[in-house]
């Protein structure tokens, strides 16, 4: 069986002004088709770099990323990306933003229109087709960001802290919306976050990364029943998972702080 996503010996080094920085060191991971995976890690651990490599935005220094057996060479519509800051085209209406991909790909208009209507409805934006991104709230922008990915009918969804910039209330709504959308659309998801509750709530599997240079520290299977709802947040099983992950994250955060302090001392 081919894996939806397979990462082998992935290493990424950035050449900065202050010398080379190793963002990722020897990452190995595989995602099964239909798996919802969340990647958790302290800030600066290279989570986003990992996603950017799979998206084809950045080339690995060593190792490889393959998606359904095909090595990643460039960005493409089979690997849809939801960005942290939505990154909608501000000069296009909601409708034109959502249909942008199919139009670029030359897909038939009738089919595109039907899909756009369906997905805008699914993310709760029916009636906002003519709005401009600047007229929408942060949560609504991110709904557009999700709808324009759904319409591509991708094999893998890559989500880079899509709810990180939203307020707690909106974030919770968006998490529920996403589980609802995923129940309908399915597909393999790689979801980057630093919010432990979010990871447990959404994921089939949670991957905890180490401090920089990022490696996979552990893989935790979240065997909570679906469909999930917000009540799950007070479930004892949820709390047990959270306590375990929190401990791991805290260790990594401590290491990260220690490493930064050591660097500072070395510089002096």
């Amino acid at each position: 069986m081919t894996h939806a996503v397979a990462i082998r010996g992935l290493r990424k080094v950035f050449d900065g002004r202050a010398g080379a920085v190793e963002a990722l060191a020897a990452i190995d991971m595989t995602l099964a088709e239909g798996e919802f995976a969340c990647i958790l890690g302290p800030s600066g651990c290279g989570k986003s770099t990992l996603l950017n490599v799979i998206a084809g935005f950045e080339a690995p220094t060593e190792g490889s990323a393959t998606v359904f057996g095909t090595p990643v060479a460039a960005p493409g519509p089979e690997r849809a990306v939801v960005f942290q800051e939505a990154s909608l085209f501000p000069w296009l209406s909601v409708w034109d933003n959502v249909t942008f991909g199919p139009r670029m790909l030359g897909r038939p208009k009738a089919e595109t229109d039907a899909l756009a209507r369906r997905f805008l409805d699914l993310v709760g934006l029916a009636g906002f087709e003519r709005h401009l991104p600047d007229q929408l709230s942060g949560g609504m922008k991110q709904r557009v960001g999700i709808a324009r990915c759904l319409i591509l009918n991708p094999r893998v969804y890559l989500m880079d802290e899509p709810f990180g910039a939203l307020d707690a209330q909106t974030r919770m709504q968006m998490q529920e919306l996403l589980t609802h959308v995923w129940d309908e659309a399915r597909g393999t998801v790689l979801f980057i976050t630093h919010d432990i509750d979010e990871a447990i709530f959404l994921a089939d599997t949670v991957y905890v990364m180490t401090a920089r240079p990022g490696r996979m520290r552990s893989r935790i299977v979240i065997d909570l029943p679906r469909p999930r709802s917000i009540e799950l947040l007070t479930d004892p099983r949820f709390n047990a998972l959270r306590a375990d992950i929190l401990r791991q994250i805290r260790e990594e955060a401590t290491k990260a702080t220690a490493a930064i302090e050591a660097e500072e001392r070395a510089r002096r």
């Binding site: 084809g56 960005p75 990306v81 909608l88 670029m104 790909l105």
Partner: peptide
């Protein structure tokens, strides 16, 4: 990046 990912 968004445009590239959408196939432009």
């Amino acid at each position: 990046r968004a445009a590239r990912m959408m196939g432009a």
